[in-house]
Design a protein around this nucleic acid. Structure first.
Lengths: 270, 270
DNA sequence: GGGATGAGTTCCATTATTTGAAACTCGGTT
DNA sequence: AACCGAGTTTCAAATAATGGAACTCATCCC
């Protein structure tokens, strides 16, 4: 999990510190951070200071703790909006979810892991950042495997090296070799399943989103539970999924940003 | 808008570049960036390289453009989750929105501007990052004014200096003096309105979220249109809003992070 | 074809910044 | 009053950033 990002000089180190704070998953004191950090006190101190007054970290004066800052939320908003996949896919996912009445995920591959960039929950009310932005394993999720199946050998090699192959359930693939066989099957079948490999009782069917040139853009999945469906039953969703995936790919692929977005002020919320 | 962030050495400069890219609002070529950047070519080049291989920027090889990277989405997720306000407020906003059947916003103050951190849309399907993470003006939105009204003099001074006082509609407050009068009224009334100050036809009622010690945590609003409601009509929502705001404040204030979140692996999505 | 143009990339001596051990400050203990 | 631990500042040495200039490699134009 802890890939030594050390490179990229000072900026890289500062971002390493930022990741550290994020990794804690809760507000941290300076001293806790120091204990977990490779940097000497003064150095870490300066990084934390810098990040804080840049808004990348937020300091809670009352509790004397640091947490990732709001500037990240602002930046992520633009990242999401500008990504060629998520905004384009949005209306199509809306429609698919409504049409199927099931939970739909949209994911991309990020540093060998699955990053969920959007989600439609059939029934429940809205889920927000709490869901989009979440990271999951690639080797034992439907979307993850669907994407891996279409990487070229070099990329796949690199990505496989990043997998932890933790055995979540007794159906989890726990070796690169076993996974490779599964990926071959997925490639011929055209779509992937998650057969309770990540969580008992949870299954899904996933479809890769590929450009005309077969480059992987992301993946789409419908998730459900063994209570309500079987893997076989999910097959009937494949055509709809495939069609949506293709439509997304086509639009994302040909998408040019609307010329000139000079207006900083946009209407909407009060 | 362009506050010269120059300070914080190399890290600050790198983040300045990141902001630049984000500010374009669309994928940019290196040369476009260069034209808009204070940095010489080689320097900018190295920054962009560093940010890219840190995942803070994403390079689209096909189109030769840079855009904010996915790492930001990951980081923002943790920022949102760790913020003491948004996760705590979530279920309460769900309930409020359902109960009122209206659109609810949750916002925080960030660098003098309003940052929307959550939203519930009464009718429409879900809106995601595209809404949360969005930034708006403080001086002409309900949530903005509600928060400004409860800053102490020093902070207020600083924040007012950051307002652009652009006249969005003919009801927009366009001077610090006029705004100060409005803020005093809000303070005595207990809540703020947006009376078509940002967008014609859009009105809202907003409630500050304050700690026991009267520190501003954020604000909550119900937005609607003049077609469906009048400012006076919104008044009937004040009690519910106030109660929700108070409940959020109380919980956020006393909130300690659940001890030990050592599990990197969390169940959920396939 | 050739040569001019321009985007993107690399080089490297100079310069400015980062580094981190140690010293200091400041609440709270013993 | 001495101690302690967390957080903060200092400063000479070590390191990394800087940016002008030169290079590459397409593309365009005569």
């Amino acid at each position: 999990m802890a890939r030594a990002t050390s490179a990229d000089g000072t900026v890289g180190k500062a971002l390493e510190v930022l990741d550290q704070v994020a990794a804690f998953g809760r507000p941290v004191r300076f001293s806790e951070l120091l204990a977990a950090s490779p940097f000497p006190k003064a150095t870490l101190y300066r990084f934390v200071q810098t990040l804080t007054n840049q808004g990348m970290l937020a300091f809670d004066a009352e509790r004397q703790t640091y947490a990732p800052g709001l500037r990240l939320v602002r930046l992520a908003h633009t990242a999401w909006e500008q990504s060629s996949l998520a905004p384009v896919a949005r209306p199509m996912i809306d429609q698919l979810s409504e049409q199927l009445g099931e939970t739909v995920h949209l994911a991309q591959l990020d540093h060998g892991h699955v990053l969920y960039v959007d989600k439609r929950n059939a029934a429940d009310p809205i889920e927000m950042f709490s869901q989009a932005g979440r990271v999951g394993p690639a080797y034992c999720t439907g979307v993850g495997k669907a994407m891996l199946a279409h990487l070229d050998e070099g990329e796949l090699e690199r990505v496989l090296a990043m997998q932890s192959f933790h055995r979540f359930t007794d159906k989890t693939f726990t070796t690169a070799a076993a996974l490779r066989a599964e990926l071959a099957a997925i490639r011929t079948r055209g779509h992937a399943y998650d057969d309770e490999e990540h969580e008992v009782g949870i299954i899904c069917i996933a479809m890769p989103i590929l450009t005309r040139t077969k480059r992987v853009l992301g993946a789409l999945s419908v998730t459900t539970s063994t209570d309500r469906n079987s893997l076989g039953g999910l097959d009937r969703l494949a055509p709809d999924l495939r069609q949506t995936a293709r439509a997304i790919a086509e639009e994302a692929d040909s998408w040019r940003f609307p010329e000139e977005t000079r207006s900083t002020h946009r209407a909407g919320a009060a």
